[in-house]
Amino acid sequence: MFQFIVRRIIQLIPVLLGVSIIVFSLMHLTPGNPAQIIAGESAPKETIEQIENRLGLNDPIPVQYFNFVKDAVMLDFGSSWRTSLPVSQELWPKFWVTFELAVYSTIFSVFLGLIAGIISAVRQYSFADVGIMLVALFGLSMPNFWFGLMLMQWFSIKLGWLPPTGWGSPEQVILPVITLGTMGAAVVARMTRSSMLDVISQDYIRTARAKGLKERVVIYRHALKNALIPVVTVIGLQFGSLLAGAVLTESVFAINGMGKLIIDRILARDFPVVQAAVLIIAVVFVFVNLIVDISYKFLNKRIDMD
């Protein structure tokens, strides 16, 4: 197990280097001069040149990338070009908001998706199965921002039960979590159903039933545990998607998280903040998938991690 973890961590290095190259390249290929944006449209040329020298924009591109990677390895992302505040001070409060939103949405999607998938598999081709799959199809098809606006229209404006915007109180958490977690719940439900149907048809499940075990024991102790491996894989991917794709939900509910921060700083050409934000999301994503890989051993003892 230890050797597997070390090997996987080493394998993450080229992945993170690739992410750093992509985000660095995209930011520098984006039209617009950051120094011009900082100084203003009517700023004299001398002022713009001074800002470019101060920010290191006149250095060769390879030198700028090397400095970015070197500082990132030391967990020093510099200062924001827009506010002059340390990047870490800009990022961490926003990151924890988005991280909480992704975690709560994942919990919601796993809870709802597992229950729906199990019911659908156990009652295959029944009215419940067809209904759950239709709802899951709806959850996969609808845009998050539209669903969020509909929830806001009904539960905030018409009924007045929940606040329409913000983040922090339990009431403010409900609508964004439902909005972001519904698509994940649909994916988990479909994968759980498919995996459970495959496991239920195995010989050892029929043997367990022939021994007189209760159906609940057969389903939850024998079938579900062996059906969880593909489901856990999907959950890991879903968490990464929720963490990286929360920008629309944050915009709809006016949540001051990483998504809104990244969009604002891309428009402002604030390279240090955008590069650090994307790199942090990538790090969290790859480590979540490492945890998913490790969980396989606990779900199935026959898997050889080494």
Rank of each mutant, 00 (worst) to 15 (best):
F2T: 14
I5C: 10
R7A: 14
R7S: 15
I10A: 13
L12Y: 11
I13F: 13
L17M: 14
G18E: 04
I21R: 02
I21T: 11
I22M: 13
V23L: 03
M27S: 06
M27T: 10
P31K: 02
N33S: 15
Q36F: 05
I37V: 15
I38M: 12
I38H: 10
I38V: 12
A39Q: 05
A39G: 10
A39I: 00
A43Q: 11
T47S: 12
T47Q: 15
Q50L: 07
I51R: 08
E52F: 00
R54Y: 09
R54T: 09
L55I: 02
L57K: 08
F66V: 15
F68S: 12
K70C: 01
A72G: 10
S80I: 04
T83I: 10
T83L: 08
P86K: 00
P86G: 02
L91W: 02
L91S: 08
P93G: 06
K94L: 03
W96K: 14
V97Q: 02
T98P: 07
L101N: 05
V103G: 01
T106M: 11
S109D: 07
G113S: 07
G113V: 02
L114Y: 00
I115M: 05
A116E: 01
A116P: 00
I119F: 12
S120K: 11
A121W: 00
F127M: 04
D129S: 10
V130R: 14
V130G: 05
I132Y: 02
M133K: 12
M133Q: 14
M133C: 11
M133Y: 01
L134H: 02
L134W: 06
L134A: 14
F138G: 15
G139C: 09
G139N: 09
L140E: 04
F145R: 07
W146V: 15
G148F: 10
M150H: 08
M150W: 15
F155V: 01
F155C: 05
K158E: 13
L159V: 02
W161Q: 11
P164G: 06
W167A: 06
S169W: 03
E171G: 15
Q172C: 11
V173N: 10
I174T: 10
I178N: 12
L180Y: 06
L180Q: 08
A186M: 04
A186N: 04
V187A: 08
V188D: 05
R193C: 11
L197V: 07
V199G: 12
S201T: 12
S201W: 01
Q202L: 09
D203H: 13
R209D: 03
K211P: 01
L213E: 04
K214L: 13
V217H: 05
Y220F: 15
Y220Q: 09
H222P: 12
A223F: 09
L228Q: 02
P230K: 00
T233W: 00
V234A: 12
L242K: 08
L248D: 08
L248Y: 11
T249R: 06
T249H: 04
E250W: 02
S251M: 10
I255F: 06
G257H: 01
L261I: 04
I263G: 05
D264V: 13
L267E: 08
V278D: 09
L279Q: 12
I281L: 13
V286L: 09
V288I: 14
N289K: 00
S295V: 01
D304C: 03
